[in-house]
Nucleic acid binder design. Structure first.
Lengths: 195, 195
DNA sequence: AACGCTAGTGGCACCCAGTGCCAGGAGCAA
DNA sequence: TTGCTCCTGGCACTGGGTGCCACTAGCGTT
């Protein structure tokens, strides 16, 4: 594997691109794993070695994503408000270059739209929540399994996904702005509701 | 169907009880749909007519649940704070008698613990979010698809599920208290984080 | 050059969730 | 009895996911 004709992760990347394209054009359920494998030039069996489920092909290397988020949270100064730190970490982790933005849009549109992917996303979100809850626990000295860390993790993740949805619906605004809008509402206890 | 030997929904209830018991004792994935059907005394085919997926057998009549929530939100006075209304509605919908509490515990433990059910829950939560977001939209005059209604729906649902988790972890407190703790934190913008 | 080791690959068979189709059978009305 | 309707169960089929095994490519050893 170390150095075949193509570099190491090339096949994986090809699979991911093929999967995204097929799912986006024909719908997640209407595309079989065989078709994705064929389009990527590998066998069905190998496809399921790259990605344990069909849904995982949409997420790419999500573990690295979570690791980056974890690193950002651990590196954040303890003086900063916790919610601001989490918002900044979400924003930075999802700060793609202009070339990769269309891919991110396609990916998020699928995840937020297709029921099967929507369901699967909960499992991925749980990994994020774990990392965020641990950060809150470190910051406050509480048990990561306690109410507050879990609540902050779940709420901020709700804010993030809502921001993603708003960003998808409106092409003109950028993601960071939507994230800040959502987190500001959350941090202030939804002042708009009282107005 | 109108009146066979047993009342109409008896078979459905039997399926639900059998499913809950089997899933709780051996794990959701380790139990096949055939086994649940056998235990309930019906055929596999009929099982899938009662519940479209194996996971749905755990949720029982969830549509009625959502309808009740919707009714409570629509009936709430407009003078009351929105978050308080939502919290009260969540509490009332989940206010079971002492006899049914063990069933609720079993159900929620499965949903929050088993990965497959965790994933499936996202689809059910989406129905709740729709109803809550519409309520917020009615209260504020905004578009139900806008940022604020979606954000409030997602955040309050996060608070509710977190309260459920805390309730499951601690047998002594009741669910309503946990719901209020979580919603109070949320409504105040997590004051504990600043203390 | 021949040997063995290792790692990735693909084919095959299998299990299980979910679905479409069709053949009964129970109840009811005329 | 006949016809209609609704529920049920059996059967076959698709598709996701997995365990097993055989093959091959690369690489170091002798």
């Amino acid at each position: 594997m170390t150095s075949t004709a193509a570099p190491a992760g090339a096949a994986r990347a090809r699979v991911e691109r093929a999967a995204l394209a097929l799912f986006a054009s024909r719908g997640f359920d209407a595309v079989t794993a065989d078709e994705v494998a064929d389009a990527a030039g590998i066998s069905r069996r190998t496809f399921f070695r790259y990605y344990p489920t069909k849904a995982d092909a949409v997420w790419g290397d999500f573990a690295a994503h979570v690791d980056r988020l974890d690193g950002l949270l651990r590196a954040a100064g303890p003086d900063r408000p916790v919610l601001a730190t989490i918002c900044a970490a979400y924003a930075e982790v999802n700060d793609y270059g202009d070339d990769d933005l269309p891919v991110l849009r396609q990916r998020m549109r699928l995840i937020l739209t297709e029921p099967a992917l929507q369901a699967h996303s909960q499992l991925r979100y749980a990994e994020i929540d774990r990392v965020v809850a641990e950060h809150v626990a470190r910051s406050t000295g509480e048990d990561p399994a306690g109410l507050l860390p879990r609540l902050v993790a779940a709420s901020t993740r709700a804010a993030a996904t809502t921001a993603f949805a708003a960003w998808l619906a409106d092409d003109r605004t950028d993601l960071a702005r939507q994230l800040h809008r959502a987190f500001d509402e959350l941090a202030a206890g939804f002042p708009t509701l009282r107005g």
